[in-house]
Amino acid sequence: MKIDSASAPRAPSLSPAPTQGVFAALWLPTDASGQLLQAELAENLSFLRQHGVHGVLALGSTGEFPHFDLEQRKQALALVAELADPLPVIANVSDIRPQVVAELGRFAREIGLPAITIMPPGFFPSSQDDLLAHFLHAAESSGLPTFLYNFPELTGTRIGLETVAAFAEQANMVGIKQSGGEFAYHRELIQLGREKDFVVFSGADTRLPEVFGLGATGCIGGLVNIVPELMVHLYEVSRTDKAGDIQPAFDRLAEVGAVLDRLTFPLNVAAGLEARGLHPGAPKAVVSSGSQRLYGEIVDELSRLFAEWELPLGAAAAPSTS
């Protein structure tokens, strides 16, 4: 469905920027031509709401934002904001082009989103000084509270601690999303956040009890799309007064992660969605026959696990609204 972003609804006021909770790094289902599938997206979001997630990140790496042009990204933001309501939606405005970063940030503010997130621009190398300038440009253009987004395995550039500190001192920084293989970096970021008054959200989906124990206040993860109830349970037991045993959910999450790690990201997230009875849509990139076979094997294996664990399928938990 196409949406005229120029006529998207304007919110009279902005909600506070989120500082805690379990956020889905939202998968965006599209058809074979790359157009968003509205009914399928609505069902996926309904599934997430029913399982207690606290919000979503729109157009993040799990959302495969590089596959969308500027107008498609505006359409996606407007549609996700409408369908996710009342959940808060953080807009990823990352791009190699400063003009696109600025336009997306302004659009996020116009439609009433509470915060943006920004990654290093990618492809070309960036100095830490240039990273800081890029991030300040994003924050100033949007006028919104801003999360930095560190995922060096994808962008090719690590956001240094000194750059995070400088940004926190010069901009309205609400937090940072730490993703990728450098788990130990959480400790330094969390300590700096206590000094500079920002929060840390983790992308380490399968290690949530550890990051919450270190002081992270939330997570933004791709696995939230697939097993939200496991991740919400881990958050509630680790971060609130809710009583419960984290070990069964932790073990299951690790098992899901190990199965998915056999396939490359983010195609593996699509396989998990399909196994859960949700809607991944068509692949946005060319997929080899070998990856297609592995995809099918993962869907079958996870489907058996979800049935064994008696996790309800998406269609049962979130009936179609069309």
Rank of each mutant, 00 (worst) to 15 (best):
G160M: 15
K2D: 12
A316H: 13
L131T: 05
T19W: 02
E301W: 08
L192N: 05
S33K: 15
A17K: 00
A275Q: 04
E71M: 12
T321N: 11
L144F: 04
F212R: 03
S127G: 15
T321W: 13
T62E: 00
P29F: 03
D261Q: 14
E229L: 08
V80G: 01
P98D: 08
R97F: 12
P86Q: 13
T163V: 09
P283S: 14
A78S: 15
D245C: 09
L253F: 00
P152F: 00
Q72W: 01
A39V: 10
I96V: 14
L28F: 08
L192P: 04
P152K: 01
S202D: 07
I90A: 04
E308N: 13
G257V: 08
R262D: 12
F250Q: 09
P152Q: 04
P266F: 07
Q35G: 14
G314Q: 06
A102C: 10
T206E: 15
A165L: 05
P120S: 14
N268I: 03
G175L: 00
A307W: 10
P145L: 06
A184W: 13
L136P: 00
G222V: 05
E43G: 07
A216G: 07
L37F: 08
A243H: 11
N268S: 12
S33L: 13
D69H: 11
T217F: 06
V237T: 11
E301Q: 10
V174S: 00
A317R: 08
L311I: 14
A285P: 02
E110P: 02
R73F: 06
F107G: 03
F123V: 09
I190M: 07
I111Y: 00
T146E: 01
G105P: 04
Q38R: 12
F265W: 11
S126W: 07
P228E: 02
P145T: 04
V224E: 06
F151C: 04
S13L: 13
P88V: 08
A275H: 01
T157C: 07
F124D: 12
L161G: 05
S5Q: 05
T163N: 07
P209Q: 10
V53I: 15
E229N: 13
Q292E: 15
G213W: 05
R207I: 07
A216C: 14
P88S: 14
G193C: 07
N172P: 05
G277Y: 03
S94H: 03
E103P: 01
Y185F: 11
M1S: 12
V22K: 03
S291G: 08
G203A: 05
V232L: 06
D300P: 03
T117Y: 05
D130S: 15
T321Y: 12
R10Y: 10
A216P: 02
A307S: 15
G105T: 03
E103G: 06
N172A: 09
L253Y: 01
I116D: 00
A102N: 07
T163S: 09
Q170E: 14
H51P: 02
V286W: 14
E310F: 06
G180E: 00
L208W: 01
H233I: 05
G193R: 00
A78L: 08
E103Q: 13
A39H: 09
A271I: 02
P152N: 06
Q178N: 12
G175N: 04
L45I: 15
A307R: 11
D241L: 14
S238L: 09
P120T: 10
A25Q: 05
P280S: 13
G105N: 05
E110D: 12
D130C: 13
E210A: 15
P319H: 15
A254R: 15
H186F: 11
E301P: 01
G281L: 05
